[in-house]
Design a protein around this nucleic acid. Structure first.
Length: 404
DNA sequence: TCTGGGGTCCTAGGACCC
DNA sequence: TCTGGGGTCCTAGGACCC
């Protein structure tokens, strides 16, 4: 370390960086397949899936993430379509997060490809935030051969908007004096927390730009969109959201819920098929719960009909559980209670909420319940799965019945 | 052959208790 | 005789984010 060790740390009025990988899944795919450079690349699920990421060549054809894959193929028939490579993406993400931690100890990751950094403690060592942003970008580019964009500001939400403005492959700094100049011309839909519905409702009220929202009385906003979101929007519109990060330290907070859902490749009204799918999903969810060491009391069934209307039904059990059979029983009862006749389902889902550490659950043994019951069976399955893989052990009704 | 899968948080009404 | 509130839990739905 050099002599710079004494004296007050240089202050900065834009300590928050938002780093966002450009077209992450697609960039990683191209990195693995250099022959694809310059071609339109779309990463997404097959069948009824949606676009996970599209590189900038594909975006010229109007392909965007979230678009149904069928639409994407129609918009860009020449696109190279690839399934997501989660393993590589996860590995690249971990390396990138490691670079962030070299730049600052205060990192709040929001997903595999996005994070906030507070660089207040790093300016003496590394220079002003804009220089840190550039160094970070060149390091990631050199080490991982992918690009990212960085927004720099005094607050979290402004930094996030700035990084969007910086895309692709750039840096945008918004000093405090320019925050309203930057924010107010933007469409309200750009704000974090304003999706399609809220945007449409605000537009109907004549609130089109962020500036319009900024100059609307708080009470009026709250009547339109609710107390909480109203207050939130007011802050966002003036760039006065939080300027502190909530870094995930330690092993990380436990999830509040765990769930799994699946869209059928073809809509179905066959109870056998549906109940079997609920068993698969219950098995998956409780398996994840057991390896995380949590149990939960509220079990929720989700059902989506062919016309995309969706409903949920939930049931709170007397005791928290992580037992596959109990969760499956609960969702099957909820399903039967719907009394669907010939309604065709597009999707079913299982979720367990109100998770608590398993160790904190003291099971009351119900009269007649054997001590080594289904829970013991689950643990035996977990051990076998760890040794032999997921295909080794599964309920009899999930074993293929098709004959040659 | 339009519209995934993993989550979080908020709202609102009713039950129930004090 | 009047018709209270506050707090918590449960359920259902909706909106949003990555």
């Amino acid at each position: 370390m050099s002599s710079a060790g004494t004296g007050p740390a240089p202050a900065t009025d834009t300590p928050i960086l938002h780093v966002d990988m450009d077209a992450f899944y697609a960039s990683v795919a191209v990195r693995e397949r250099p022959d694809l450079a310059g071609r339109p690349v779309v990463v997404g699920g097959g069948g009824r899936g949606v676009v996970l990421a599209a590189n900038y060549v594909a975006r010229q054809y109007g392909v965007r993430s979230g678009l149904p894959m069928t639409r994407a193929r129609r918009l860009c028939p020449d696109a190279v379509v690839l399934p997501p490579d989660f393993e590589t993406v996860t590995r690249v993400s971990a390396s990138v997060m490691e670079v962030f931690r070299q730049m600052s100890p205060v990192v709040e990751a929001i997903s595999l490809d996005e994070a906030f950094l507070d660089v207040r403690g790093s300016v003496r060592r590394l220079g002003p935030p804009s220089a840190i942003a550039e160094w970070l970008r060149s390091t990631i580019h050199d080490e991982q051969r992918i690009t990212c964009s960085v927004g720099v500001a005094a607050t979290v939400a402004v930094a996030k908007l700035a990084s969007r403005r910086a895309k692709p492959d750039g840096v945008v700094v918004v000093p405090p004096a320019l925050v309203t100049t930057f924010l107010h011309p933007l469409d309200v839909g750009e704000l974090w927390g304003v999706g399609e519905k809220t945007r449409a409702m605000l537009h109907r009220l004549g609130l089109v730009t962020v500036g319009d929202v900024a100059h609307t009385p708080l009470r009026t906003l709250q009547r339109a969109v609710g107390d909480h979101l109203g207050r939130e929007l007011h802050h966002l519109a003036w760039g006065t959201d939080r300027g502190e990060l909530a870094p995930r330290s330690g092993p990380h907070e436990p999830d509040r819920s765990m769930g799994a859902d699946e869209t059928f490749s073809r809509d179905t009204d066959d109870r056998d098929v549906i109940v079997r799918e609920l068993l698969r999903l219950s098995t998956r969810v409780t398996g994840r719960m057991r390896s995380a060491g949590v149990a939960g009391r509220t079990v929720t069934l989700k059902v989506r009909f062919a016309d995309f209307t969706t409903l949920t039904r939930s049931r709170t059990l007397p005791e928290a559980t992580d037992v596959t059979v109990e969760v499956h029983q609960a969702v099957t009862r909820l399903y039967d209670a719907l009394g669907l006749q010939r309604a065709r389902l597009r999707l079913v889902g299982v979720r367990v909420e109100g998770l608590v550490p398993r160790a904190s659950v003291h099971r009351q043994l119900v009269l007649g319940e054997r001590e080594h019951g289904w829970a013991e069976a689950d643990r035996a399955v977990d051990r076998a799965t760890r040794r032999f893989g997921a295909a080794a052990v599964r309920p009899a009704s999930l074993v293929g019945t098709r004959r040659a």
